[in-house]
Write a protein that binds this DNA or RNA. Structure first.
Lengths: 339, 339
DNA sequence: TACCTCGATGTAAGCGGTTACATCGAGACG
DNA sequence: CGTCTCGATGTAACCGCTTACATCGAGGTA
């Protein structure tokens, strides 16, 4: 079932069929109808590989993600997918990479298959990224601190500062922070925002109150248990993402510590379930789907108007503080202890 | 940068380069090294579109999903992606379809781009699915009750029965059920399992205790509030998926109803956060990533050995009961009421 | 030496589209 | 009536790779 079959049935040449189907040039109305009828009758669907080869475009963009935890991952894909389909693009996805080498390999395999790439590679060094990326290919980086490439970043720094200030305003001074993976750019920025805000507020940040974490519920759970053993016990926990905050919440519940009266807990991301845990989580909202959407927008610009594609454009996603029930003033906690 | 450039640099023909790169036929060791060196020096990467066109294979499979809620969605993709990459396949994803028509359109657009399809279309009628699917294309259906096609299903019926029996054994007789979308095949099977188990146990199933739901937290939240108003009040809630159970848990907490002592709550799916809500959710585990993995396995079989591809093979994923803290005997509740 | 075999490599015809250019017929115009 | 213009359509080259088949040279055999 090729374009020639359609051409034969319609009594025209393959070129005319192509013209009708692409609608770029003028065709006589009568001819047009014949071709359309023939295509319809034959259930003709163009072969995408052939077209890609010919026009040197695949109408597909690649998405390369690390092994990100569930909700974030799917939201990014959804955001890109919706935007992409609106403009007739398809998406080729590759996630869950155990290591950087594997990710680079995937990147290579996408060559020729995609018109552009959205890459989220918090762990891959800039140097090796640059080396393995087909240089001509439009590219948008997600959450990377790399310069010289188009990139979308989340205002991690500002968000972390806002949350820290909120906790301080509530009266907390001993605030524990559960960190994300050390190589992760988002995690680093959140930590930096926390530290700077603490310092700016004249509060001391003790390294003992900065716990290791890996963005998973398990690590948040473990970190919270450690925090409970610290003397003097902190009055608030700020986790670098919601998953860890959820894990911490579970650990506190198991230990009989009431949130927020005995311990305030804050997260980051505002993943869908954040409002359904008990108590609903105070967090920093990041519109993850919008992140994907804008990444695609930037990429599309680079693909369709290569001339305008000034490498190094940066788009920053704002964050907003979402106050729910998991944080309150430490005074209330004292009351709780008295009773 | 084409195969001819490499050929020129290595002083051989394009055919030889192709042979070296594909390793299918014998090439003299010396020639092989020269070609490899040339390819390396030129950073040559084959053009996938050209290769696909030539061998009529794209080494890519398409995944078409409805707009599924976060965790399930990403787990399925992850399962398929991991399995696919192991065998050198790529995945083309399309999710979040607002309606069946849009989904069919996407299906058409994937023609020629993929070697096979994994489709999860609980809402699309079998008839229209069959019509719009390129007939020659290998296909695996996910969670569909359709016959005559390869398909993977979850043992929704058995799982729902097991959970219902557990609740009955604990002593519950007034059990409310929060349903999923009416058109969703999984949801229907879970409801059927619940009803049959209830009947088998000699318990009455009142339509008033079967609440509408849509697999979202919000709908679970709303349903739980309605359940609390029912007289006599049920002693247990069985939600058709975890997301709704989480929503119900939040509604109960807001209303001051203690789980499990005053109300037992059970879910279905065992999504990652199920163990981190308060109290940890008793649920039915479905290995979602495995679902994806096996779907790919079935598809791969159909692609690589079309002769063996007996349409209509069915693979059923078993479910297991996961007992956590959200369910207990209703007796304890009475005690709670007495105190 | 003539002939055959066989392994390594080159040649060229596709794969299914797109598109620059050629062609052709019909009015417009002098 | 000859020529020019212009719109509609056909022709054929090309996109980059694979592969059946042709070719070629070396070694084996009679």
């Amino acid at each position: 079932m090729t374009i020639h079959d359609v051409a034969a049935r319609a009594g025209v040449s393959a070129a005319t069929v192509s013209r009708v189907l692409n609608g770029k040039t003028v065709v006589r109305e009568e001819t047009l109808q014949q071709v359309l009828a023939a295509a319809e009758a034959l259930c003709y669907v163009p072969n995408v590989a052939a077209r890609s080869l010919s026009i040197r475009r695949s109408q597909t963009i690649g998405i390369v993600l690390p092994d990100v935890h569930g909700e974030f991952f799917s939201e990014v894909i959804r955001g890109i997918d919706v935007a992409a389909r609106r403009t007739g693009y398809h998406i080729l996805v590759s996630g869950s990479h155990s290591d950087a080498g594997e990710m680079l390999e995937v990147l290579a395999a996408m060559r020729g298959r995609v018109d552009g790439l959205v890459v989220m590679a918090p762990d891959v060094s800039h140097a090796s990224l640059h080396r393995s990326l087909p240089s001509g290919l439009p590219l948008v980086l997600l959450n990377s601190t790399d310069n010289g490439r188009d990139a979308i970043t989340i205002d991690n720094y500002g968000g972390a500062q806002a949350m820290t200030r909120l906790l301080a305003e509530l009266g907390h001074s001993r605030i524990a922070f559960i960190k994300g993976p050390a190589q992760n750019a988002d995690a680093r920025e959140r930590l930096r925002g926390f530290r700077d805000a603490m310092n700016g507020l004249g509060l001391t940040v003790s390294r003992r109150l900065e716990l290791a974490g890996s963005f998973t519920e398990e690590s948040g759970h473990a970190a919270a248990l450690k925090i409970l053993k610290t003397k003097p016990r902190p009055t608030a926990i700020f986790a670098a993402n919601d998953s860890m905050a959820v894990g911490a919440l579970a650990a506190l519940a198991e230990s009989g510590v009431v949130v927020p009266s005995q311990m305030s807990v804050a997260g980051f991301d505002d993943i869908p379930i954040a409002r359904y845990v008990a108590p609903p989580l105070t967090t920093i909202r990041v519109d993850i789907a919008d992140l994907g959407r804008r990444a695609f927008g930037l990429l599309l610009g680079a693909i369709e108007r290569p001339a305008f594609a000034a490498a190094g454009r940066r788009d920053r996603i704002a964050t907003t503080l979402i106050i729910r029930k998991s944080c309150c003033s430490p005074e209330i906690r004292k009351k709780g202890e008295e009773s």
